[in-house]
């Protein structure tokens, strides 16, 4: 019973069918949410008393920073699933996430340095969180290079999973240790444990923008994972039928 259930959910076919059903729902709700949050945040939320209007880039910067890390966590979970239970779908998802993770980390860096010009007076600082995001960005690119170096995809899947897992142990260590050096970055605005240090009038649109942005990125991951599946399982009859 359990085995059957596991086989069903782990099969790329079920995944594609399921994802095709929920994709439009996720896409439209998150698009509407993000646009709504942007209008709220850009036009209606008050300006910051110290940073003026420039802070408004957070509606893009914060979701991007948040996702650059959460996508890595998602990859780490997929990597563990792949190495322990040998679920191929998990490997396809890692491969699908890596370029999107790189993109999001890049967005976080670019939006951060644009924000840095008016607030810190410089577009680049060797600040702890900036540095660790840059390292994260390079790690994503490293994963992509590693996978693309091998012609045997089954081997490449294992290598990339090992590297993702090692990275997932290392990233918190990198963050902590980079934090050791004096940091310029403002402390995180929202954490799970503490009361947010940001005013509710800015927090709600920020929260909505994170939801919307995440939803859109998830849609991107879904599309990219479907490309992976069709590439890798292209000769199976269900794929021919499906496409």
């Amino acid at each position: 019973m359990l085995k059957k259930l596991y086989h069903q959910f782990a099969s790329p076919k079920t995944y594609v069918v399921l994802v095709d059903k929920i994709y439009p729902i996720i896409f439209y709700t998150s698009l509407i949410t993000y646009v709504f949050a942007l209008i709220w945040g850009l036009a209606f939320a008050p300006s910051d008393y110290m940073q003026g209007n420039s802070y408004r880039i957070i509606y893009m910067h914060v979701p991007a920073s948040f996702l650059s890390e959460s996508l890595y966590i998602a990859m780490a979970i997929a990597a563990a699933i792949f190495l322990i239970w040998k679920v191929k779908l998990a490997a396809y998802i890692i491969k699908a996430i890596a370029p999107i993770g790189a993109l999001v980390a890049f967005l976080a860096l670019v939006s951060g340095s644009i924000w840095g010009i008016p607030t810190w007076g410089t577009w680049w600082q060797w600040d702890a969180r900036v540095t660790s995001t840059l390292i994260l960005f390079i790690m994503y690119l490293g994963l992509i290079s590693l996978h693309s170096s091998f012609t045997n995809y089954e081997k490449a899947d294992k290598f990339i999973s090992v590297l993702v897992l090692i990275g997932s142990v290392n990233i918190p260590i990198i963050k902590k240790s980079v934090d050791w050096w004096n940091t310029l970055h403002q402390p995180a605005s929202i954490t799970l444990t503490d009361k947010p240090s940001i005013d509710p009038s800015m927090l709600y649109p920020l929260f909505l923008s994170m939801l919307g942005f995440s939803g859109l990125i998830i849609c991107l991951v879904i599309l990219s994972s479907k490309v992976q599946i069709f590439n890798r399982e292209g000769n199976k009859t269900w794929v021919k039928y499906h496409v």
Binding site: I138, M139, G142, S145, L146, N170, I174, K176, S177
Partner: peptide, 18 residues
């Protein structure tokens, strides 16, 4: 490629040395 994927892992050690 080996260096590219190893270097990020070394940062904490470098910071510790610093």
């Amino acid at each position: 490629l080996g260096a590219l994927i190893t270097m990020p892992l070394l940062f904490p050690v470098l910071i510790l040395l610093g």
